[in-house]
């Protein structure tokens, strides 16, 4: 079971009595891959993503049934704070802490969580995270400038660095490039590819083309249901399900 990061079965989610995710069965997310989730808006893909690090439970009136295993362990039995340090998330809109410097943005979680107390260690950890997020060279001379001086694409990579600072095993990304210009988006895609050697990436993608470019596995969500999932090259050339065919070919 070591090969799967998440295993999801018989999953149902209701938010305020609305059935958002409907019987997601037998979905397994393999380790060290980029797993893309695509689907039209309102298909429940963001909800699904937030479920994986238990952010969804912050909302009111959420009812969850079914099974989600993280390395074989029931996630609902893991302390959410610990789980979230192992499963990071990045959202659509770049949301760095605008009041903090670039350095502090990355250092913040480490400091606030009391994970690193020594100044030298902190500098090392921040530098490493910025390097991993492929941002270090662009910001190394202005680490004390506020995050707002960065471009949208850089801000998004800063947010990724902020998440990477906690050394998560999984990184969830919710349409991370939809608000970013083409060049910035390309850099983020390249970054994700380079990251998958160390961590597992689950990406909600706003276009099938992006999912096709960078993902190893892909799942289609439609109207709260899991339509089909599998290896990307198969799904994009020989989808088994008619709905997948229609979605990727742009007939919906």
């Amino acid at each position: 079971m070591e090969n799967y990061v998440f295993e999801i079965d018989h999953l149902n989610v209701w938010i305020e009595n609305k059935h958002i995710l409907k019987d997601i069965c037998n979905l397994k997310i393999p380790k060290n891959t980029i797993f893309a989730i695509m689907g039209p808006s309102g298909s429940g893909k963001s909800t699904f993503l937030k479920l994986l690090n238990r952010l969804l439970e912050l909302k009111k009136n959420v009812k969850i049934e079914g099974e989600i295993k993280f390395y074989g362990q029931d996630i609902f039995k893991i302390d959410p704070i610990r789980l979230r340090r192992r499963v990071g998330i990045v959202f659509q809109q770049p949301n760095p802490f605008y009041h903090m410097s670039i350095f502090d943005n990355v250092a913040y979680a480490l400091k606030a969580n009391g994970l690193i107390k020594n100044k030298a260690d902190l500098i090392n950890a921040v530098t490493e995270a910025l390097i991993r997020a492929n941002l270090y060279d662009e910001v190394k001379d202005r680490l004390n400038k506020p995050a707002s001086v960065l471009s949208g694409g850089q801000q998004q990579r800063l947010v990724i660095a902020r998440a990477l600072a906690l050394k998560p095993e999984v990184l969830l990304l919710d349409e991370p490039t939809s608000q970013i210009d083409v060049v910035g988006a390309r850099k983020i895609e390249e970054l994700l590819i380079s990251l998958k050697e160390q961590i597992t990436i689950i990406l909600v993608s706003h276009t099938p083309q992006q999912a096709a470019r960078i993902s190893d596995y892909v799942a289609l969500f439609y109207d709260g249901r899991l339509v089909e999932w599998g290896q990307s090259e198969n799904i994009f050339t020989y989808p088994k399900n008619e709905l997948t065919e229609k979605y990727v070919a742009g007939r919906i």
């Binding site: 099938p208 096709a212 994009f236 050339t237 997948t244 065919e245 990727v248 070919a249």
Partner: peptide, 9 residues
């Protein structure tokens, strides 16, 4: 158009 699925085939 970066065709996919049947279109690509």
């Amino acid at each position: 158009y970066q065709p996919m699925a049947t279109d690509l085939r």
